Amino acid sequence: MFKSAIDAESHLAILEPRHAAELYQLVDESRDSIGEWLAFPKKTNKIEDSKIFIEKSLKRLTENNGYWAGIWHKEKMAGSIGFLYMDWNTRKTEIGYWLGDNFKGKGLATKAVSRFILHAFHNLDLNKVEINAARTNEKIRAIPERLGFQQEGIIRDYEYINGEYRDRVVYGLLKEEWSALSDHLRKG
């Protein structure tokens, strides 16, 4: 299926049922760190759970309503990234992403998010990309900030994870902002 290089050693590919065991293993190995910020690791208790997630993602892809891809580094699954939905009326989407413990600090998430932004604006002709992150998750928040997103607000007590409410920071990037930033970077 779809495969896109993000650097010489890393690529993105649409998650397929054949990836379920590898996805489950990665979640299981990084369950505590991922689960600190996201709810899904507590719901991922066997390979079948990952398979069901992948099948739902493929269904959303066929319905033109988002999808998830795997992030691979040196031929090992490193994490996942996805378009959480597609709002075709307002031409916007939200990107979600996570990495396994052994793959953090390599720039993989930033490169994957950049590839998804490029795809959203140039191939899908969307007008806006959003990223939401827990207010206290500084590492995840650094990615949209590094890529030129604007902080648009904070949703208080957005979710309840690990016995506490978490605020969400909403970031947005418009197509015209990305184009201007891309032009500026190309000119040096």
Rank of each mutant, 00 (worst) to 15 (best):
E29I: 11
P17M: 03
E22N: 00
D49Y: 14
Y85K: 11
N65E: 09
A142V: 12
L118D: 07
I52V: 07
N137Q: 10
G35F: 03
G100I: 03
S33R: 01
E152A: 13
Y67I: 09
G70V: 10
N65P: 04
L126Q: 03
R166F: 09
R156P: 02
H19Y: 07
Y97A: 13
I131P: 10
A133G: 08
I54N: 01
F149R: 01
E176I: 04
K56E: 03
G148D: 03
I155W: 11
T93A: 15
E48Q: 10
T93M: 12
H122N: 05
E94H: 09
T93L: 12
E159V: 05
K56P: 01
H184N: 11
A109G: 02
W68D: 00
A8L: 11
L58H: 07
I71V: 15
E145H: 10
K139H: 09
A134S: 08
P17A: 06
Y160V: 14
S50P: 02
S182N: 09
W88G: 04
D87F: 11
G148T: 07
G107A: 08
L15W: 04
K128Q: 06
L15C: 00
W37D: 06
W37R: 09
I47G: 04
E164R: 15
Y85W: 10
G163H: 05
E48D: 13
D87N: 05
E75I: 11
I81Q: 07
K56A: 06
G188T: 08
D157Q: 09
E75R: 12
R18A: 02
Q150E: 13
A13Q: 08
T93E: 09
E22C: 00
L15Q: 08
Y24T: 05
S182C: 01
E164I: 15
I131F: 13
E164Y: 13
I34F: 00
N137M: 14
K3R: 15
H122M: 02
I95G: 06
V129K: 02
N127H: 12
E164M: 15
E94Q: 12
D167H: 14
G70I: 07
R156S: 05
I140P: 00
I117P: 04
N123L: 11
A39D: 03
E22S: 03
L126P: 03
D32I: 01
S80H: 04
I117D: 02
A109F: 06
